[in-house]
């Protein structure tokens, strides 16, 4: 049973990674590691910033 739950968790983590759900976590890690003095953006601010930057920097999707 535990292995099934673990497997499912792993799959969800993988899917989340593919879809970019862990972007904020990665941003925090980067922020902490690079020793910025300013506090990091909050989760809400981060996602806003992320989609707003896509507005001016569009990425193609393939056929």
């Amino acid at each position: 049973m535990n292995t099934i739950v673990e497997g499912f968790r792993g799959f969800a983590r993988y899917l989340g990674g593919v879809m970019g759900a862990d972007a904020y976590q990665k941003y925090l890690e980067h922020h902490a590691a690079s020793g910025h003095r300013a506090p990091p953006m909050t989760e809400r601010e981060f996602w806003r910033d992320r989609t707003d930057r896509q507005d001016s920097n569009p990425q193609g999707r393939c056929c």
């Binding site: 993988y14 970019g20 941003y27 890690e29 690079s34 910033d49 930057r53 393939c62 056929c63």
Partner: peptide, 27 residues
């Protein structure tokens, strides 16, 4: 160039899925 936003080191297997999802479509 790491900036935590556009330039982020990504696990190879996750990036494989990500890249595949970006290239595959209706074509």
């Amino acid at each position: 160039k790491a900036d935590g936003k556009d330039y982020v080191r990504t696990d190879r297997n996750v990036l494989f899925g990500h890249h595949f999802a970006a290239i595959a479509g209706a074509g």
